[in-house]
Design a protein around this nucleic acid. Structure first.
Lengths: 362, 362
DNA sequence: AAAAGTCACGAGAACGTTCTCACATATGAG
DNA sequence: CTCATATGTGAGAACGTTCTCGTGACTTTT
């Protein structure tokens, strides 16, 4: 009734006239206790406004019932939805959520992981910002901290992972454009990190059908690969001038790079954007250029953002199950926390092509 | 080098040949230590891969360096941005962030607050789902837990608060429509909780200019009040049929309620939507009805969502400084945590009307 | 030269829980 | 009747830190 400052289990025990051990058993719900003592303790706890101190409990049990998440940027709709998915299953299981942003920078990611590890989270969900080196994540695994990766993989790091089947989804999207008669299709992609030999080497290898370690690629490179495969399947040549590299994960970068292509003589009749952020930048650029969709350009986007359904025309796009991805990741993490011991699993979520009105038949 | 399982401060002390007290002083950065012992301890810590246990530290210091946040829904762009703002200043000050969703439901909010309190957060930022009763928040305050409210107030709860100046912003938006010659302006608002006497009583009182406790109103009611004031100032009568109440905080609810008005004989020439979610639902409804903006209807929205700038036409809207609101709230909370003792402050952030192309001159 | 700081270190308590153990008592099986 | 098993309780250790205090050694002030 009168929850003044803080009452400890010792206070409750004293008020109830039992030992701290018994009070602990009642309040913590473990061991045996008689009904009448239980009642006394509960009444005492109630009147003192007792609230268990999770810190002390965690210190001794070694479990915090808290999940750590390192996202790229909470503000980004992709991460916001994934986080909501994670939050849903965390909450359903009585777990708290400690969330940080990496802004896709390795240094910030390392700091975040360190912070979360010090706070003794029971497990971590990370969208790694570097797919090659990640000592901090290898360390985590070596120390037995459950870890699930979302959206990206890390070379040599064998842990659970959930991602979209990017190659297949991009291939389907681009084939849809080709089927509509488009022959010159531009792609606007982030493609941030430098592959060995750069974009050109990657393209020639992809076009030649050389085997590529596609699992370890960034999503935007995987989606580029899907774009190339669609062309190969349909027997279309690839014009490297149509592959736009924004170079950073921002709408501004996409916005900056689109006008050059659209005003050039080799302008494409259709565009494929590889994620929500690229889509926004591209849409803004097209608006600036006063190009109409789909009369002047057709467009297929990746990731189904809210506005795409009521934009006029509706935007044809590849919908990733973002919420379900977060939920799946959290569920896998909880399984590991509860001690399940499968070999590392990779869950590739299917994406769905939603056809609306942004593609014209040529 | 070899960060096997977990090394404690005792292990480090033993390896360095000093007492745990000295090791603690070096590693924790408090008290005096000689340079050579410091070096020994640091080297030992390094080679054991020592990572401080924040739980044990917090248990004794009584500080967790963690902020708790109860948001409505992380997935909603409004909360996502506010959270990013909070996250920015938390991170800059070395604080972690424990985040939960309330879905605007009091029961979930209470559960969240309880969870965060048990985890001993140093302070809480809450968007209260009920502006009248909030025993859990009063309790928090009574127990001396620093608390900052965002977006909404709670009657009788004197704590720091940051919100948008909703009445002024809505008034400005609606006057902009009136200045453009519009005389029949519809408003699409959430208006979720039942005021005494309901919407009609509220309207008659507002129209009559009766004094209203506007501080304690939900944002959507405040924005409705701004709508009424704009009419009063401009000498326009209010047609209650033009005030659309969605009744819940979802785009679907707005989507359901708009067509009835727009197809009726008393259809307005312009619409004012009171938040991002109402805006989405309304836009979707207008798209379904194949009404063109601004030829068939003009529209002014509340909250500047990403798509509004590249939508064609651009959407005229009231931009709230969401990021800055989160940052301000976090900064105020940190000040309280550091023991500052001002009287409760209310920070009303100004909103800016961004004129784009969704309003036609009549 | 005595008093009073400052600096350096260790022993052990403290934070608020759960866990281990010892010791009861009751209940059922042989 | 006796042994095992389930039920109930308390004393005290344990979790991994920081904090308090006591004891020196050295330096500065009076």
């Amino acid at each position: 009734m009168a929850p003044k400052s803080k009452a400890t289990i010792t206070d409750v025990a004293r008020a109830a006239g039992v030992s701290t051990a018994t009070a602990g058993r009642v309040l913590g719900g473990y061991g045996y206790t008689s009904d009448d003592k239980k009642e006394q303790v509960l009444k005492a706890a109630q009147s003192l406004g007792y609230r268990p101190n999770a810190l002390a409990r965690s210190l001794i049990t070694g479990k915090t019932r808290t999940l750590g998440v390192v996202a790229g940027d909470i503000q980004n709709p992709f991460y916001a939805s994934v986080l909501r998915g994670i939050s849903n299953v965390a909450e359903a299981n009585g777990f708290g959520l400690l969330i940080t942003n990496s802004d896709e920078a390795q240094t910030k990611e390392v700091r975040s992981v360190e912070l979360l590890a010090q706070k003794q989270v029971d497990g971590l969900i990370v969208t790694p910002s570097d797919t090659r080196k990640a000592r901090h994540l290898h360390n985590l695994k070596a120390m037995g901290v459950p870890l699930v990766l979302i959206d990206r993989a890390v070379a040599g790091l064998m842990v659970d992972r959930v991602a979209t089947d990017n190659i297949a989804a991009a291939e389907q999207a681009v084939r849809h454009l080709i089927a509509a008669g488009h022959r010159r299709i531009g792609i606007v992609a982030e493609l941030v990190d430098e592959k060995d030999g750069g974009l050109e080497t990657f393209l020639t290898r992809a076009i030649a059908g050389d085997p590529i370690e596609s699992e370890m690629l960034y999503p935007s490179w995987q989606r580029l690969l899907g774009y190339v495969r669609a062309h190969r399947i349909e027997g279309l040549a690839i014009d490297p001038r149509l592959t736009l590299r924004a170079g950073s994960y921002s709408a501004l970068a996409a916005h900056a790079v689109v006008p050059g292509l659209m005003t050039a003589p080799e302008a494409p009749t259709a565009l494929f954007t590889t994620d929500g952020t690229m889509s926004e930048g591209t849409m803004r650029a097209l608006a600036d250029l006063k190009l109409s969709i789909p009369q002047d350009v057709s467009i297929v986007c990746f990731d189904d953002l809210d506005w795409m359904s009521f934009h006029r025309p509706g935007i044809t796009t590849v919908a990733q199950p973002r919420l379900a991805m977060g939920e799946a990741a959290a569920r896998m993490l909880l399984e590991r926390i509860h001690g399940e011991d499968y070999p590392p699993r990779t869950v590739l979520m299917p994406a769905e092509l939603i056809k609306r009105g942004s593609v014209t038949q040529l």
